[in-house]
Nucleic acid binder design. Structure first.
Lengths: 210, 210, 210, 210
DNA sequence: CATGAATGAGACTTCATTCAT
DNA sequence: TATGAATGAAGTCTCATTCAT
């Protein structure tokens, strides 16, 4: 995740400013805040610029276009997200524990940042197909992480050996994602993290060698 | 579902034509086709009207506005969808079989109608929050169906008695939904219905009394 | 006023129903009510038809188009208006009394019918120039009535002999019209008819031989 | 009037560009010309923009919406109008002369700008009630000017002491307004300013202490 | 690097009028 | 005569992006 160089845009006419500097981060954070507050369709570039404390035109020194803000936002946040999970997973060898860590980290990070949760679960999905494909590209890193756990579980004999990896991954991701989305739509009324344990148990049951 | 007499809509300033008749259905079907083909944001009312073989203005005799086409589309299709599943479920008493029927019907109906699958899995989710809330309202009927199966399974001693119904429902729906979405994004390259069995098995394992 | 045959439309392709019958009057009265209530720009043909208790299409059996309803309305009401004033004027020979009758009848008739007052003073003036020209055509009958009084007053030596008839007529009409418009815009809060006397006095002063 | 600092408009969601600068005036002037030429209902924003030599969207940097162009137009022109009259009135102490100045300025300014005359006498009155209320708000300044003259005339013993100020004001304004409207509807065929004297005389006669 | 005024394409919806019944 | 479902033209406004300063 840390060096899939989609960061530069080779072959395009214009060169963007180095994706560094405080302005870049300011704009990303402003975007999350504005989109969470106003919804995707009411988040004009000018509103994000204002929130970030820069001029409208400045946005275009750091991002190719509006869509690029969204993808970058997702890349940036998801990158850190995956990285943290990877770090935590590395320190644990038990398959069951690894799965619990994955679930817990996923729920925890989104519970910690309500704005980000709204953006990832609801607003970002309102984007067009093309953008969604690019987002899926970023998501792949996370899905690979899940695959790794599944494969390791099978290899270690913890999970059934005839598990279909794709379906299993879809079950794990689909379940967690639905749990989070419901929590967001219910306006974060209940504690999300305490759902880790039952979700973990059910998923394990679904996969465990009987 | 076949005679919910919404023929008049008292309380609104304008009265819509009867929500029946061939034009109504023509427009709904045209909308599914056009949206699946062009994407939500490139599906102008005029395009839908043309595809339906009616004048632009005629749309507004049957639907309050563009958004209303979407909600109606979902209500109409989802209504039939739920009805069919209910009918099939009624003829079967085994819990395991009921769950298989639910999964199979879900996957089958969407595999049968690629356009509808694209619309429900991708395009309809691009709508704004308000519209999504109305869609969720319709979805509730389906989720209740799932709940019924879960509760019955617990009652019959087939499922664990300490299952959290909400989380279980989110697992079932989240898994199936993710399976379908992935299939749509992979452009229907593989057979969806043959995934019924493994999905069924995994979900059963997750819930079954050990 | 009673036989200026603008009633038929010679040379046009379609023949309108005879401008008689209760439907014709129903539509005119419905138009006055609807326009007074909703304003000119929110008075759709369908709304007028509904208020009149006829189908939209029926309107077009009695009127050439929407504009024709308005002109007819004005012709109809103004015709009766002028006729009544003429009748009253005939029974009085004094110039001063004639002027008082004119003013009084004008104010009285509009005070009696608030809806009509709103339509003539405010709503009908929102129409386009072409329509306004046709309305002015109808108004000419009234203005001629005023001219008659002025000329008679000069002839009889009651008014100054060097009065400019056009300007004098504009003063009389402009004053009364402004008085009524103000009363309508103040939402008929005060009694209109009691203004007859002071208006009469001032107008007489303006014209009277010193 | 030349420095009413409406530069910001706090409280609105969007901030309009400064209501100054050449573009603002260009648009106002273009609007007068286009509306006088084509009539209110055929004066699309795009037509005004073209005449002003700016892009359609630029209009909305200076005006809230189309209606706002009209109100601003009236405010702007009427503001200067009143200001000029006030200046002229200040240099004259005789009541009779003051009244003559008012009438003369009124007729002169409209005779000088045929387009503006068409817009104020005909087109601006086609607007809806809400807009007309805003226009009346502006008009109040002018009516107060008239009131001042009336009150001063009474005080000085030039006018009758029992004059009803409201009716007198309505007579003065109604007369002048009708004179101008007639002139506009007759397509400026005759000289308007030469009517000052007879109008002045008649109005004086109506008010003067006998 | 930064600004922000200016651009202009693009679409939803209304409503007067028609015409087959 | 009467109906009312169907028509389709037409216009306001938004907002991502640019570029002169």
């Amino acid at each position: 995740m840390n060096d899939h160089s989609l960061l530069s845009n080779p072959g395009r006419g214009k060169t963007l400013a180095k994706r560094k500097g405080q302005k870049y981060d300011q704009i990303i954070d402003a975007a999350v805040k504005v989109i969470a507050q106003n919804g995707y369709h009411h988040s004009q570039v000018s509103k994000i610029a204002k929130e970030a404390g820069v001029a409208d035109g400045t946005i275009y020194l750091y991002f190719k276009n509006k869509e690029d803000i969204l993808v970058s936002l997702f890349e940036e946040k998801m990158g850190k997200f995956i990285q943290k999970i990877e770090e935590e997973l590395a320190g644990e060898s038990s398959i069951e524990a690894k799965l619990l860590i994955l679930i817990t980290m996923h729920l925890m990070q989104l519970q910690k940042d309500h704005s980000l949760a709204i953006v990832t679960q609801l607003e970002l999905r309102q984007s067009n197909i093309e953008l969604r494909n690019r987002i899926n590209e970023v998501l792949k890193g996370y899905l690979k992480l899940i695959d790794t756990i599944i494969l390791l579980g099978i290899e270690k004999g913890v999970f059934k050996e005839d598990l279909d990896v794709r379906i299993t991954r879809q079950m794990i991701f689909g379940t967690i994602d639905e749990v989070v989305t419901d929590w967001v739509m219910k306006e974060h009324k209940y504690d999300l993290v305490q759902l880790c344990e039952p979700v973990h148990t059910m998923l394990l049951n679904a996969m465990r060698r009987s």
